[in-house]
């Protein structure tokens, strides 16, 4: 049997399709230091991230896509660097979103396929951020390099006042 014959979309995986989380709060509010390190790393020096008077958005604000990377390990959650002495350990877990169950597909190479963002409002320093996520679809395809399983995930990000910040559609690929 080649890997092209393997059906990774088992009943357990199918059961995840359409599953939606509640709104989950990010472990801490939007911090000035995290925003600074983020926009420094992007090499985006817009004054709207540091100067409250620089924009009409209130502020200072975080870059538009910042909330997507706000999830941090909570107390008691496993250290992602545990086991990094093993040569095959990739440094990732398979919990793709804080509110969704982890994926259990025995493929080892994880790729980000792409994103669609719709923006409504900037997150501001001090905002509490919440995300609701849904497995929109999970499906299998055969490509040049073998079988891949694609996870289409929708996310909605809001602030503490339930004001809509952004919506995303993301495709994660395991192969």
């Amino acid at each position: 049997m080649t890997d092209l014959d393997v059906n990774y979309i088992t009943d357990d995986v199918k059961a995840l399709i359409g599953m939606e989380s509640d709104f989950c709060e990010m472990p801490h509010p939007v911090e000035a230091s995290e925003v600074r390190r983020f926009h420094h790393a992007v090499m985006d020096d817009s004054p709207r991230y540091s100067d409250a008077g620089a924009s009409r958005y209130g502020g200072p604000v975080a870059p538009l896509g910042f909330p997507v990377h706000m999830y941090r390990r909570r107390p008691g959650e496993p250290d992602p660097l545990d086991g990094m002495d093993r040569p095959d350990r990739d440094g990732l877990d398979r919990k793709l979103r804080p509110g969704l169950p982890p994926i259990d597909v025995p493929l080892t190479r994880l790729l980000n396929g792409g994103y669609r963002y719709t923006f409504y409002r900037y997150a501001e320093i001090g905002d509490r951020i919440f995300v609701k996520s849904r497995y929109r679809d999970i499906y299998q395809r055969s490509g040049r390099s073998g079988v891949m399983v694609l996870f289409d995930i929708e996310d909605t990000y809001v602030n503490q006042d339930r004001e809509l910040l952004l919506e995303t559609k993301n495709t994660i690929i395991l192969r």
Binding site: A41, R73, L81, M84, R89, G91, L92
Partner: peptide, 9 residues
């Protein structure tokens, strides 16, 4: 480091 992504690649 800024986004705490430890993906080994």
């Amino acid at each position: 480091s800024a986004i705490e992504n430890w993906h080994r690649i």
